[in-house]
Design a protein around this nucleic acid. Structure first.
Lengths: 144, 144
DNA sequence: AATAGTTGATAGTAGATAGTATCAACTATC
DNA sequence: GATAGTTGATACTATCTACTATCAACTATT
């Protein structure tokens, strides 16, 4: 396996070490829908370099920008997934994620359409927040 | 003056009464950039029915949805004003609001362009949050 | 097979955040 | 012209939120 930034290689404790936070905080962020680590069949989590970067971004948003977790989730829920993956109109009509206002698509079972068989972890929608670049910049690219 | 919903007619205390909140909370929301009441020349604030509706929405977002004020402001900052008012590319390059990531345009002096001479209170960008309809729905309308 | 790490869950804490109280100077309205 | 309301400012507080500690059962690694 080549060393791409999505390669899940850190256990939860070594990731927590890198980030100087507790293992439990890592799991909290996941429960809240902010991160989506790789899971082995046994259920054990593994984190990639992208995941580390993403969590740094989350921490900055919470600690420096003073936005709470509900706020972050609501912002993530605004990412216009439909315009990023270009799913069809009929896909959208059936899609629970498209209709959701308070949860990002990757927190919702929405596999009855375009996203069938795709890993949310790998999806550009999920990764929009990965590098802490603002979602506004993504909107600027999409909206002329 | 006809009775349109933007007509500023309530003083701060009668508005606070209608909303069952303190006068001071009203001014806090303003300081935080969530509302933009009409001001008389003396500096006295006047609120319209739309303002009342907007504050109801803000309260719901804080108390029920549990999103903090910083979070709300960051969400408002995501409204794609440029695509709503259709300002020119060169306007955008000069516009401080276009570049801002953490404040909505109406909190920023951005009158050196398209918005020159326009009242932010009356602008569709500001009013996007007026009825508590989600900004996601606005994005859906703008993004095919 | 034994140690170290992981899982989910519940209970608890330090500190931040939304909101309040109080103030003197100024304005509206009767 | 007098009362009631408004302005901005600072100091204060109750409550919630992000985070931690501890637990027994399970898994990885040596």
């Amino acid at each position: 396996m080549p060393d791409n930034p999505n390669n899940p290689k850190y256990t939860i404790s070594s990731a927590a070490n890198l980030l100087q936070i507790s293992v439990h905080t890592m799991r909290m962020y996941e429960r809240e829908g902010l991160i989506l680590p790789h899971k082995k069949e046994s259920g054990q989590r593994l984190y990639s370099d992208m995941d580390i970067e993403r969590i740094k971004c989350i921490r900055h948003t919470i600690n420096e920008d003073k936005i709470n977790i509900e706020g972050i989730r609501r912002i993530l829920a605004l990412i216009p997934c439909w315009a990023i993956v270009h799913c069809s109109i009929s896909d959208r009509e059936r899609c629970v994620a498209f209709g959701s206002l308070n949860k990002p698509c990757w927190m919702i079972n929405h596999k009855n359409n375009f996203c069938e068989g795709r890993e949310c972890r790998e999806c550009e929608v999920y990764q929009s927040f990965g590098t802490c670049e603002s979602i506004k910049n993504k909107l600027k690219a999409l909206l002329p």
